[in-house]
Design a protein around this nucleic acid. Structure first.
Lengths: 226, 226
DNA sequence: TAGATTGTTAATCGATTAACAATC
DNA sequence: TAGATTGTTAATCGATTAACAATC
């Protein structure tokens, strides 16, 4: 990083905030008004000190012996994450994975709304999936400007990811959630988050190999199936 | 961790291996036979020292001035991750997200094959999606035993995640890829990897809020849309 | 040989964990 | 008041980065 940073919040803490938020919304719905770090930690199998430290990044100040007011804590986290307003996003790549996100309400709950989809397959262009129109990627820059969109979900095959990413940068995107299992080479003024399911699978399988628990030759079990 | 660990490979290194693997397969397909860390690092925008360190977890030994033989490096990584054989997996939750994974070939390329799907919605039970039959979650334990499956992808709504996870543990799963944005409370003999897209979105949006680049009130732009 | 590259050992950096003071 | 809880400061731990020796 070449830019001077002024006491930026630790990324691991920021990434845990949605977990807290989900739990807090749950207990608010159940009528709970106050909550302590100890309580949150217990519910989420975390360390209470870590929870407290994470919450401080939002600037909230709790009361000793009491804890935090649930509704205020929710507000403060939402505001810190910018999730108190809906932000528009583009979805690039309307394959199996991309299509899933069009109907995925998790984003909406967390302040992100997919407002248009893009692809290169001519048979998809002009169709509407889950109420969202599919455009050709050529129109990315034009529509980004018109619709004031700066966030993109990238869900194309690995081989097409870099080209699509360059289009997104050219279209003025400020943040990209990359679901393709590739590193994107784009200017670091654009924030990229890689959601890499292959990496998660690697973490699991390598540990199972270590402990020799991975079923060695699965194919042989196939005839047992039906 | 209460179990004594014997020089386990660093998790961040393990999680980067699939990235290297993807690139190595790509250059092997293009006919390249030898590769150096410098080259890999340049292609993937990483540090060459880090690449070298990551590769050493597989136990491979390179030749100074030469580098590594691409095909051997691929073999060694695949073997380290246990991706040289196909491992069977269950998919739990056939909603939008779950269905996407049924047709997602990324897993297959990386040694994971979904062999059956599970849900609780009666209208889905007995149907076949992408060639995979959907069973009731009641049958998890029975079929896990019969099909010798120990890996599960959990793609149910957050509210249903804990219950489904308990069923999976009871069914003898050894590894769970959790796509629900919740912490699962299960014995630590079962390896869990959380794929948390909300966390990635949090990382992006919080940084955009910091730099005041997040479009403040998106809803007002809606009429511009069509 | 010379220089590029590997592999190892030490230094830095950041996050987590522990210890403790402050407070309702 | 006493004790639970917050908030802060210090210690630990692990990963990344830097420095350097080994080698083809």
């Amino acid at each position: 990083m070449d830019i001077e940073r002024q006491k930026i919040a630790p990324l691991p803490s920021v990434k845990r905030l949605p977990l807290y938020l989900g739990y807090l919304r749950e207990i608010r719905a159940r009528g709970r008004e106050l909550v302590s770090c100890t309580h949150i930690a217990e519910a989420l199998c975390l360390d209470s000190v870590q929870v407290r430290k994470d919450l401080t990044v939002t600037g909230i100040i709790g009361k000793p012996k009491v804890g935090y007011r649930v509704s205020i804590l929710i507000d403060v986290i939402e505001k810190f994450l910018g999730w108190n307003n809906l932000t528009g996003a583009f979805l690039v790549g309307v394959g199996n994975l991309g299509r899933a996100f069009l109907g995925y309400n998790m984003f909406r709950e967390n302040g992100l709304e997919i407002v248009a989809a893009f692809d290169v397959a001519t048979e998809k262009i002009g169709t509407t999936i889950q109420g969202k129109e599919v455009f050709h990627t050529e129109r990315l820059a034009e529509l980004a400007k018109k619709m004031n969109v700066q966030i993109a979900l990238l869900a194309v095959p690995a081989a097409a990811a870099q080209e699509a990413a360059s289009l997104l940068v050219a279209a003025g995107m400020k943040g990209i959630i990359n679901l393709a299992p590739t590193k994107l080479d784009i200017p670091n003024s654009v924030i990229v988050e890689n959601v890499n399911i292959a990496a998660s699978w690697a973490a699991i399988s390598s540990r199972l190999v270590e402990s020799q628990m991975l079923s060695v030759d699965f194919k042989q079990n196939k005839e047992v199936k039906s």
